[in-house]
Design a protein around this nucleic acid. Sequence first.
DNA 1: GCGACAG
DNA 2: ATCTTGTCGC
Length: 283
Amino acid sequence: MRLAHPEFAPDASLSREEMEELQHEVADAAIFEDAFEFDPESVRAEPTDDAQTHLPTGEDENEGEDDDSDVAVPTESPESPVVVGVDQAFVGDLAVSAVVASRDGEVVERAHAAVETEIPYIPGLLSFREGTAILRAFEELTVEPDLAIVDGSGRIHFREAGIATHIGVMLDLPAIGVAKNLLCGDLRDPPEGHMAEGERVPVVSNSRVSAPDGTVIGYALQSRQYPNPDKRHVNPLYVSSGHRVSAETAAELVWQLCAGYKLPEPTRRADAYADEVTETVDT
DNA sequence: GCGACAG
DNA sequence: ATCTTGTCGC
């Protein structure tokens, strides 16, 4: 696919101030509300094993319905959305970005790109280190994605423009940020003990975030938990809107994309593919 | 000056 | 992110 907004390119040669200014522009262009076409409930982590099972078996299974006479029953539901997982791996100064696209929980295409790293990791400026590699991987993709799950934060960012937001805005693609650690913000109602599987706690902005204090910028999502969290527990994921998805919907979609593991399937697939590519295209 | 800090 | 064995608990 191609870039919708090249003017927001994460140029690593910019000064720190220019990078931060660009992030403010990206945040202004971002939409932290639901603005997508697909049906969020149709998004799933794994293929439904009966996909082919309900094909015509001669007679139909109409239960006492009178008659729809001659018209062919339009069992045709809208095309399921294409969800892509994005993740990176590094080999020395080489950043390998992997993008894996799935539809109905099945992988339909994989793409990758390796780009030389120009700057070190700087909290808050991640997109300027990994962004170019990610965009190049997306350029290699031929299918049209409907949603991107990006490793890292989206709105949970000092200037509300984490890597998921930057990528989403540049491609004008609905995007969600999934991070394993909290970059900034506070949990609104800190649970006493550990969170139960499926539980969500709002992440709100504080003085370190450009958004007005108390704004819900994401959710801590307990995507997986052990039976007895007192002995051994799993840390939650920090989900935030990247672009064209609200914080609530982002958390729900990520939850639906989980299949028994802490990380959502799109991310796990991209992670595995990134490693796969790394072992081949390195040295 | 000190603290905080995705991947 | 990456360097790495065993080990504890499900």
